[in-house]
């Protein structure tokens, strides 16, 4: 993957004001801060109800230095389409549209509008920050909540179902760019957003976003937790460009032979997984192993 931006090359401009209402150690804050550096000043944001709404602030103060329209929960992608329609109709050039929504607002209630927009090929970047539950409303389970996770609506037995693979759903729409990222790997995220900016059509970027409040770990480990997910082969950094899949960053290194960490420390260090049994972990380990075997057979390092 081209790019490979280093810390010293990152734009210095900040697009988010401090003193906002995000939790201490919020993974979204990192992704949002670096993501907006990648998007740049000529951007209109579209945001549904989510943690980001809270981060963005209560009337009349906004923490984001970019224009943003707040929309209803199910309509993020449709609203992004609407902004684009207006820009075209009014011949306003040089402005891009980026939607930022949570996992629920993307893969559950928002999937219909997103699918419609992808089918139309509407030219915006859709960024899903996946903290794996409806965190803003108090940690209720969502489609992307992983198997076994305790949430306030799966409080005793943990989620019985598995994690919905939203990037795969988006890839099935044959859009030109789908990427999987992590808030703990912001330089990889930066490069992917920058690449998405150069592509016409619907671009989808999924960011695995550790959430200390909802996942049950000390906020100081947000980045460490996110990296651990990637280093254990659970969360993969990849891009699918015109249907062509390739791993990036640490995931690419794992494919090339870098030693993969075991998954157990990731699960055992989060309060939400305390109901996972050893059998559950073994099952998950097998799933990850199988996935990587398939990767090795299918893709070159």
């Amino acid at each position: 993957m081209q790019g490979n931006t280093s810390i010293l090359n990152l734009p210095k401009d900040e697009f988010v004001h401090p003193g906002n209402r995000a939790c201490s150690g919020c993974g979204l804050s990192i992704a949002y801060r670096i993501g907006l550096k990648a998007l740049g000043r000529e951007t209109i944001l579209v945001v549904p109800p989510s943690c980001l709404t809270v981060l963005q602030g209560l009337y009349p103060i906004a923490s984001t230095k970019l224009p943003c329209v707040n929309v209803t929960f199910a309509s993020t992608a449709a609203a992004a389409t609407g902004v684009l329609g207006a820009l075209r109709a009014m011949n306003r050039k040089g402005v891009q549209v980026a939607a930022w929504a949570g996992d629920g607002g993307t893969g559950d209630i928002g999937i219909q509008a997103l699918s419609g927009a992808a089918e139309r090929g509407d030219d915006f970047i859709y960024i899903c920050y996946d903290n794996e539950a409806y965190m803003n409303t108090g940690v209720q389970r969502s489609g992307t909540t992983p198997h076994g996770a305790l949430t306030t609506t799966t409080p005793i037995k943990g989620k019985p179902q598995g994690k919905k693979d939203v990037p795969a759903v988006m890839a099935a729409h044959n859009i030109p760019y789908v990427a999987s990222c992590s808030a703990a790997c912001p330089l990889d995220l930066f490069d992917k957003i920058q690449k998405a900016k150069t592509i016409s059509g619907t671009k989808y970027i999924h960011i695995h976003t550790p959430c200390p409040s909802g996942w049950g770990f000390d906020p100081r480990y947000t980045v460490k937790m996110g990296k651990l997910a990637v280093e254990s082969g659970l969360v993969d950094l990849y891009e699918i460009e015109n249907g062509c899949f390739r791993l990036t960053g640490t995931s690419k290194s794992l494919l090339a032979g870098k030693k993969m960490k075991d998954i157990e420390p990731y699960f055992r260090s989060q309060g939400r997984f305390k109901r996972l049994s050893n059998e559950d972990i073994s099952q998950l380990r097998r799933t990850v192993t199988n996935k990587w075997e398939t990767y090795r057979k299918t893709y070159e390092a």
Binding site: L58, A62, T64, V69
Partner: peptide, 8 residues
């Protein structure tokens, strides 16, 4: 830049 229709 401004934020339209945020929580009030």
């Amino acid at each position: 830049p401004a934020n339209f229709n945020t929580v009030t």
